[in-house]
Amino acid sequence: MPDLSALPETLPERRELTTVPRFSDKVFRGVVTAGGFVALIVLGLIAVFLATRSFDVFRMFKLGFVTGFNWDSGDPDNGITPILGIGSMLIGTLVVSFVGLFFALPIAVGTALYLTYYAPYWLKKPMTILVDLMAAIPSVIYGLWGFFILMPHAIYWAKLINKYLGWFPTFSVPLPIFERSPFIAGLVLSVMIIPIITAVSREVFSQVPLDRIQAAYALGATKWSMIKTVVLPFGSSGIAGGAMLGLGRAMGETVAVYLVLNLYFLPNFHVLFSAGGSVASMIVTKFGEAGSLELKGLMAAGLVLFIVTLVVNYLSNLIVRRASRTGR
């Protein structure tokens, strides 16, 4: 028997391991590489474009552009200096998006659970297609629906919430004006992001390993206790990822929010009150009448929104990865 600890004195020289790809492989490799880099380049160019256009604004207002609450394009003839700050719009974006997520998440997860585990076989497919179709409706339609159909009802609900939960600061209002509030914009957004959260959740629910589901049933689990112990822990990362994707979509949503939200350049945490903010909608609102400096300000606002969305996506990735370490 050879002595395992004894290695030969001189080890052989390592050989170079090479694979020569075929021509067809090289062509395909070129095509997919180009495709991959196009996406990266477009992303990079957008960032560069926004950064160069907004450079002056950031030099003028420094961090005040992000933290300031005032937006005044100024009037050089009358000696009024311009002041550009999107702080209130950023806060408003977050408020509206989280209201949307608050309503969308339970509905979407419930829908996904129903479709995966409860719906009769013949209903699964048509219902899945319908839910996916919700994502295909143009956002201006959601905006119009929100304005004409949803808002009259939502005002009534807002008044009810205000009446019974008004002691809680968020649900109080400085004035009894309930039209075009962050609450209503959030409701419209929630309907818009339900499909994406449902689709992502449904996808992870359908990937729950069958042997784990069977293990739970073999231990005398009911369907609900099986879902609680097996499906939700396994799917938590996917649900979080879907929620973050929904949040990203909600933050970037422009036209629908523009129609149902009253833009107001002061931070407002009274979600039922008719004053809110949204960076994307603000850009649309101001774009048509903007002077040269204000236009640069809008580019800068776009850059900030771009960065915030990237950060949200990065955070969602972190959450997904952390959840997947413990959950699977």
Binding site: P209, D211, R212, Q214, A215, A216, Y217, A218, L219, G220, T229, V230, P233, F234, T326, G327, R328
Partner: peptide, 17 residues
């Protein structure tokens, strides 16, 4: 299923527990 338990081919402990 409480009275008649089962052990499967592939070990399948709940990984989150």
């Amino acid at each position: 299923r409480l009275k008649v338990g089962m052990v499967f081919q592939k070990p399948n402990p709940f990984p989150s527990m």
